[in-house]
Computed example of a mutant assay.
Amino acid sequence: MISGMYMGEIARQVVIKLVDAGCLFDGVASEKLRTPMAFLTKYISEIESDEEFDNFVKTRQVLDELDVERYRVADCLVMQEVCSVVSTRAAYLAAAGISVLLDRVEKPEVTIGVDGSLYRYHPKFHDLITEKLSQLSPTKSLN
């Protein structure tokens, strides 16, 4: 459950739990947000690309696209945190799998090929995987 196909749905389910607990969007979720698979993984990348000084432009665009009517700056911050946690989890799980393979390969230097729009477009995914790999397999030189 680390591919781009699933990450958006994982984030959506977390968001719905927070809405239902009254912690997000004043406890009101749009019909679109409640629709399974409606929160696309590209939304995670867009939300995580937002800079605070941008006044959450991309986050607000995503929420508007999902027909969320009532949101505040605090809601945008929570959305960024949810997306960050889901992305970090996925990157660390990918790194764990790669690390096991690296430990089995008896070469001092290994090249790893990665494919997919998540890896290509997410603003932090590469760095998260690289960071975790350096912790899990510190003796390997990665390209």
Rank of each mutant, 00 (worst) to 15 (best):
Phe25Asp: 01
Glu65Asp: 12
Asp67Gly: 10
Arg12Cys: 03
Gly113Trp: 03
Glu69Arg: 13
Phe39Trp: 04
Phe25Thr: 07
Thr35Ser: 11
Glu69Leu: 12
Asp103Pro: 00
Leu102Thr: 09
Thr41Gly: 05
Phe25Arg: 11
Gln80Ala: 03
Val85Asp: 07
Glu65Trp: 00
Arg12Glu: 04
Glu46Asn: 10
Gln61Tyr: 14
Asp50Gln: 06
Ala29Arg: 00
Arg72Thr: 15
Lys58Leu: 11
Lys17Thr: 11
Cys83Ser: 09
Glu52Lys: 15
Val100Phe: 08
Met37Cys: 08
Ser84His: 14
Tyr71Asn: 00
Leu93Arg: 11
Asp50Arg: 10
Ile98His: 08
Asp75Asn: 03
Val15His: 03
Ala21Thr: 05
Lys42Cys: 10
Asp50Glu: 09
Leu18Trp: 02
Phe56Trp: 10
Ser99Trp: 04
Glu106Phe: 14
Glu109Lys: 13
Ser87Gln: 09
Glu46Trp: 08
Val82Trp: 04
Pro36Tyr: 04
Cys76Ile: 01
Cys23Asn: 15
Glu69His: 11
Glu69Trp: 12
Arg104Tyr: 11
Ala91Ser: 07
Thr59Trp: 06
Ala91Gln: 00
Tyr71Glu: 03
Tyr92Asn: 13
Arg60Glu: 08
Leu63Asp: 02
Glu109Ser: 14
Ala38Asn: 10
Val15Asp: 08
Gln13Trp: 02
Ile44Leu: 13
Ile47Ser: 02
Tyr92His: 15
Asp54Thr: 15
Lys58Val: 07
Ser49His: 12
Pro36Leu: 01
Phe53Thr: 15
Val15Tyr: 05
